[in-house]
Design a protein around this nucleic acid. Sequence first.
DNA 1: AATTGTGAAGATCTTCACAGCC
DNA 2: GGCTGTGAAGATCTTCACAATT
Lengths: 200, 200
Amino acid sequence: MRVLDQLQKEDHKIVSSAEMGRWTGFSSEQIRKDLAYFGAFGTRGVGYDVKSLQRRIRSILGLEGSVPVILVGGGSLGSALARYNRLHQPHLEIICILDNDEDVVGTTIAGIKVRHVREMQEVVRESQARLAVVAVPGDVAQKTVDALVKHGIRSILNFAPVHLQTPSDVVVKTVDLTSQLQSLAYYAQRLGERTPGQQV
Amino acid sequence: MRVLDQLQKEDHKIVSSAEMGRWTGFSSEQIRKDLAYFGAFGTRGVGYDVKSLQRRIRSILGLEGSVPVILVGGGSLGSALARYNRLHQPHLEIICILDNDEDVVGTTIAGIKVRHVREMQEVVRESQARLAVVAVPGDVAQKTVDALVKHGIRSILNFAPVHLQTPSDVVVKTVDLTSQLQSLAYYAQRLGERTPGQQV
DNA sequence: AATTGTGAAGATCTTCACAGCC
DNA sequence: GGCTGTGAAGATCTTCACAATT
């Protein structure tokens, strides 16, 4: 999606699986297999039409129209995410920030209203959001996620450093920044050793 | 590591692979296989000694003493990362922030000095850092990484939304927040379907 | 001539199941 | 009795290689 958006901006009409491979680090076969899984999108001997592929992937991802996202946690990480302007792209919209700190509730971060966590149910209902970003401390993350799931959230991007339990129809993706850095420390110490794949 | 630190804080002496599995979402076999790869750390019939396992993993990861980390990019994401206190844990230390904005250079973010990117070589040499975090705009990320590698950085945590080219002995881990959310949108739209694994 | 879409082969990762040890 | 460490089996993922198509 990212590569297609870029190519479209640069007015490229056609792109091959090999080119997409170069821009993403995947092999061309992998690109073709993954796209073919959802249908035949390309033209043999030619490649893929940038605009039409972009439209079809967007539709597969469910990124048509405006997709509402709820952000829970208005601390330093939460507000950075709210300000992170790449998240303010046409199809994803952080519609509300929920926090439990009365001093923050009522204010605005990056133009987004901060409301109290206790209004979660209302906010989910009003917005029909199915997607949430969790940026709360680890010790309240499970509780937060349980509440989100109860009110209808189906997918969660979690920045709290804990493994979350959810029903099998709710998808959680945890991004633990400290763990990421710690695992990179392993490679940083092993100087001189050369291994084939480097993008971890 | 995260789980072991927690268990140690709670004064647990012994932990089994099954318990670690519950805390991380991995199967107990997976935990045992992964640990066994580095040696026999447990005691049959008993489990793993929390403190000694913690020490051994810390040593394997190269997290003994203080590991210096350079952060490039003092924008909203960069400074949020600097302020993110879980990264200020005993063994990882962000020793410097590099930026190209003269207005930010010379200031301090979360107690960390901001210096100009042109001082990169000096900063790497002084600190002997091998680890860097890249939080710069996508269009300058490759250039930034090339410079970091040239000056001796071996592992990079990249938040720029681009695939980076590096020599095979340099490890890059890219965290593209927008892509993460976009892929979660896919699962959010598929209501009602139940699939076995949910932690993506 | 070029590039997709895809079976088949190959490689890798995960789970099973149990011997070995405390 | 309980839990680790690990070969073997099973499952999944990736690459190869080429027919199909423009």
